[in-house]
Amino acid sequence: MDCGTTEWLTFLFLMAFYLSVEIYQVLRRKEGEIISFAGPDIPLGDLLGTRANVRMKDGEVVDAEMSGCTLCLGRFEVGDRVYVCKNRDKYVVSLPLFMKGRRKRSDFCKSSCRREQASIQGL
């Protein structure tokens, strides 16, 4: 098998992989609304990843993980509609290529600052 054929086969595999992951996540995702963030209790932990409490359409509230990339690229705030995918033992917030517009209910930084203040006052 020459190098050119190997490259093409690899390319096709990767395209198939990418499409199947996107399709899998689209088919399995459920829509919900962020009601609060519950980031890791370490300083600057939100930079690396955070957790969001998401109220699903059926009323269930789940604790979903959100990577730093998702949080940043999606610019999520409390009140935003998001999609979550269920992993084996956890929920993960996903960010599809196209998203509907979101209602902004509150200033995220104010929420984040309130969380920080409450945490300091709780000492």
């Binding site: 600057l44 932990g45 939100d46 940043c72 995220f108 930084c109 984040s112 600052c113 920080e116």
Partner: peptide, 25 residues
């Protein structure tokens, strides 16, 4: 450049409204 982006979490490049962790670093 992506770490200190003010876009993280919907921050704004203005005093006091930047997302706390992003602003800190």
């Amino acid at each position: 450049s992506c770490g200190p982006s003010p876009l993280g979490g919907g921050g704004m490049m203005a005093e006091g409204t930047m997302r706390a962790d992003t602003g800190y670093i």
